[in-house]
Amino acid sequence: MTPARVLTLPGWQGSGPGHWQSRWEALHGHIRVEQHDWMRPLRGDWTARLEEVILAEPGPVLLAAHSLGCILTAWWAAHSAHTRRVAGALLVAPPDIGRDDNRRMIPGWAPVARQRLPFRGIVLASSDDPFCGLPHASRLAADWGADFVNLGAKGHLNAASGLGDWDEGRAWLAALGAAPPPAG
């Protein structure tokens, strides 16, 4: 079986050089799903781009999504006929896109797709994420049929959180890649 290629899915404004996604790309050769416009994300455009990148890969992929990238993953999975190409998704710090402040910053992304993902997922959340409370992140994980992990007080799990190369996240990604597919 071909090992899964890791695709990183940054959120709104992309991921700068100190972000764990950028560090993983440099250290481990993961591929970023580049979007046309990181500042004014359009759900349809981002979804089409993710579809293109997944279809261009010769084998299975693992998705390492951050923030709006998590919402993109769920939306894509609800509409794509190619979800069997995804071995699993690491969903880090999903935002509460229905909250008024988040919806104003990133219009057009609500409502969130809440169907069960057709591949294994792990939602990693922080107890002091300014963009999403733990109860909402936990509900998203339950709706998506994903495992839920509270990582404690680590902010938005981005560069400002001081995660560096984030070995803990790599361990969760490795566990996800080694897991058998979900039943049903």
Rank of each mutant, 00 (worst) to 15 (best):
N102F: 08
V61I: 11
A142G: 05
R85W: 04
W38F: 09
L90S: 06
I122A: 10
A113T: 00
A87T: 03
F119P: 00
A89S: 11
A56L: 05
M39T: 13
L27H: 13
A137V: 00
H19P: 00
A77I: 02
L63R: 06
D129C: 12
I71H: 02
P130L: 09
A125T: 02
E52W: 09
S80M: 05
L72D: 04
A110Y: 02
A137I: 00
F131Y: 15
P118E: 06
L124K: 08
L90E: 02
A48E: 15
R139F: 12
S67Q: 01
R49P: 04
A141V: 06
E52C: 06
Q115Y: 09
L124G: 04
H136M: 14
A137M: 01
R120E: 00
P10G: 09
P41V: 02
A65Q: 06
V92W: 02
G29P: 06
A89R: 08
R49D: 03
A74F: 01
A78V: 09
V112I: 11
D143V: 05
P107E: 08
W46E: 10
A137S: 09
G121F: 05
D37E: 11
C132R: 02
M39W: 14
G11Y: 05
T47K: 12
L124H: 07
D100Q: 14
L134C: 14
Q21E: 03
V92N: 01
T47C: 15
I54S: 08
G16P: 12
I54H: 07
A89Y: 06
D45Q: 12
P60A: 10
R84E: 15
W144L: 15
M105N: 12
A110N: 03
D100G: 11
V53A: 04
L90C: 10
V86P: 13
G59R: 04
A137C: 01
C70F: 03
D128C: 11
R84P: 09
S15W: 00
G44H: 13
V61K: 14
G88P: 05
R85F: 13
L42H: 15
A77D: 00
I122N: 06
A125V: 03
A142I: 01
W12G: 11
